[in-house]
Design a protein around this nucleic acid. Sequence first.
DNA 1: GTAGCCGATGAGAACGATTGTCAAACGCGC
DNA 2: GCGCGTTTGACAATCGTTCTCATCGGCTAC
Lengths: 135, 135
Amino acid sequence: MQRMTRQRSAVADVLDAVEDFRSAQQLHEILRDRGEGVGLATVYRTLQSLADGGEVDVLRTADGESVYRRCVRRGHHHHLMCRVCGATVEIDGPSVETWAAQMGAQHGFEDIDHTMELFGTCARCAAEGHRREGS
Amino acid sequence: MQRMTRQRSAVADVLDAVEDFRSAQQLHEILRDRGEGVGLATVYRTLQSLADGGEVDVLRTADGESVYRRCVRRGHHHHLMCRVCGATVEIDGPSVETWAAQMGAQHGFEDIDHTMELFGTCARCAAEGHRREGS
DNA sequence: GTAGCCGATGAGAACGATTGTCAAACGCGC
DNA sequence: GCGCGTTTGACAATCGTTCTCATCGGCTAC
């Protein structure tokens, strides 16, 4: 059974306050800075259980790190994430879903599931980058 | 410049012989069993360079391990993989590419990249499963 | 209110995939 | 064959994540 503890609600609070995808380690650091120390293992455990309950979305960055975010949209949707700052836009791919099912049927596959995420550099980070290049 | 060494061609050979996605560690083990010992670090390095050159496809399993495969199709494409036996079909999603670019532009993102893989149960494994259920 | 059961916590160790190190080995153009 | 510069490999190091286990503290029953 699930108990409501100081740590669990602290993690939930941070997730509510932060808009972008964050790694467990980043969240752990934020909690420390806030003065609400929560053990790293606990952060991982809490995120895991929240993810299992569909409370947060998880996805893997290009370098294999898991990042978490409380999403506004419930149910299935996709993301467009800035690979620099983590800013994220929730989107859905109306055509993707049907296309996936079609492809599956065409090759005799059942229970088609799919992963699909977009990565890019958001306007702000792109500007930042260009400035640094001293164009 | 790239040199042709015993190790490099050994790795390439194994990739040619194996049809499904394999992890670096699995390939390393296969090489050892074949008697063509190749250092683990070298396997990683070789796979990396092959992947950089577009010679092999890389993707990440659900548990974060990188798996490699020599694909028939050159250039960008996607996969439909059986989650039971690992059988893989190469496919492309003509509309997905343009849709991704569109979405990126629409939200002010640059250098859009995307990941997208389909998972399902192939005809054979589905039949297997149904038989086991003893319908 | 409080006793006590049992899940939750946290510090640190363990883990597993991957990458870095660096001296020795070896392709390859000469 | 020579020699240079890349490649190799054993091992250490890194890094995210999970495990361990003694302790803590919600929560329910009284």
